[in-house]
Simulated assay, not measured.
Amino acid sequence: MAALQRAARAEAPVVPALLGTDPSERVLVLEHLDQQRPSSDWIVDYPAALARLHATAGPKDGGLLARWLGPDEADVASFLRLARALEAPVTPRVSDELHDLVQRLGQAAGHALLHGDPCPGNPTH
């Protein structure tokens, strides 16, 4: 519910409107949206909608939304094992870059409302 309320702040809608809730029944009532075919500019519209979604949360929302937990060292190890199992070349530079990326992501500051699975098959609007 908190994420839907934050997402509703976007200048152009990125989620259906939250019309009502019943927390005791764990029910959300959302605006009905008719299914539409993507526009010819969907490849531009989609990332623009994601950017609007990400911009809807700010510092005052700290603690209201679940904290994003990015990849960690176990994810790096798992990815490297998979690459080796697939016989993909894994140079020391690849491993170093992945470890550095995990470290940078762990230090990232800021507040954003993130889509959990951003791909065109899982739309934000």
Rank of each mutant, 00 (worst) to 15 (best):
L105Q: 11
E87N: 14
R6P: 00
L50S: 11
K60Q: 11
P92S: 07
R81K: 15
D34R: 15
V94M: 02
D34E: 15
A12F: 04
F79E: 03
L105S: 00
R104V: 09
A55K: 05
A3G: 13
V44F: 10
A49Y: 01
T91A: 00
K60R: 10
A7V: 05
G121K: 09
T56L: 02
P13T: 03
V94R: 01
R37Y: 14
H111N: 13
P13G: 05
S95D: 12
R84C: 10
C119T: 15
P47W: 13
W68I: 09
A77M: 09
P47G: 07
L69P: 02
A112F: 10
H54W: 08
P71R: 01
G62Y: 07
P123R: 14
G106N: 06
E73K: 01
V102E: 04
E97R: 08
L53H: 03
K60A: 12
R93P: 02
T21C: 02
L28M: 12
G20T: 09
R93M: 08
S24Q: 14
L28V: 12
V76Q: 05
Q103A: 13
P123D: 13
T21S: 03
P92H: 05
E97V: 11
G106I: 01
A17K: 14
S78G: 06
P38H: 10
